[in-house]
């Protein structure tokens, strides 16, 4: 999608793998079975968490920074 000219943000949990395969915009998700939610939270808090992840990922779409990453997820970077 990036190659076709559409900015695309990848929301995923194990972000190092997304980095390995070369994604340009990566945003850290909640957990593998529920990337944009959390069943342990109340309904309101879960929606707040979802808002945080979705707006965070959307913000990456507006960034012109070459290496963009929602949360700094790598311990030792390139």
């Amino acid at each position: 999608m990036e190659k076709a000219g559409i900015p695309a943000a990848h929301i995923c949990t194990v972000t190092p793998i997304s980095k390995t395969v070369g994604a340009a915009r990566i945003f850290g998700a909640q957990a593998i079975p529920y990337p944009t939610g959390d069943p342990h939270l109340s309904r309101e808090k879960e929606m707040a968490r979802r808002r945080e992840i979705v707006t965070g990922a959307l913000a990456l779409l507006t960034s012109s920074d070459k290496s963009v990453d929602g949360e700094s997820n790598a311990v030792f970077t390139d």
């Binding site: 194990v14 190092p16 793998i17 390995t20 790598a74 311990v75 030792f76």
Partner: peptide, 16 residues
């Protein structure tokens, strides 16, 4: 699977 990430990143940290 996911442990591969631990393996690789310890390797990277050490080499760096």
């Amino acid at each position: 699977g996911n442990p591969t990430t631990d393996l690789m990143h310890v390797c990277r940290g050490l080499e760096k």
